[in-house]
Amino acid sequence: MSIKKFIKNVQSSLGLGDYKVEGKKKAVKELLKKLLDRKRELKKAIEKASDKKNLQEELEIVSLEIKKGKEILSKLYAKKIKGSKNGK
């Protein structure tokens, strides 16, 4: 077994994988959590507010960002699955 292959095997057995992808996933998850919290707060605020225009605009932006974040996350998960299949 070559050294490179050995390192790869150790990495996959320890679940180290692609740490860049892992880091990115963690960052997206944290951002999504913040955006979802904000969306919840905005919805509550819209119900109570008299001038809903600005809040509605923010809600649309946040919803779009959440959609984008989820897409990025699913791409990252797909990458991981693909990577582990190749490893096998």
């Binding site: 880091g23 990115k24 960052a27 997206v28 951002l31 649309e60 932006i61 779009l64 990025i72």
Partner: peptide, 18 residues
């Protein structure tokens, strides 16, 4: 943002949509 910038920012299509 851990190189997420380009993917997370609104592009022209998103702005038109809103």
């Amino acid at each position: 943002m851990n190189n997420l910038n380009d993917e997370m920012y609104l592009n022209d299509g998103d702005i038109s949509e809103i």
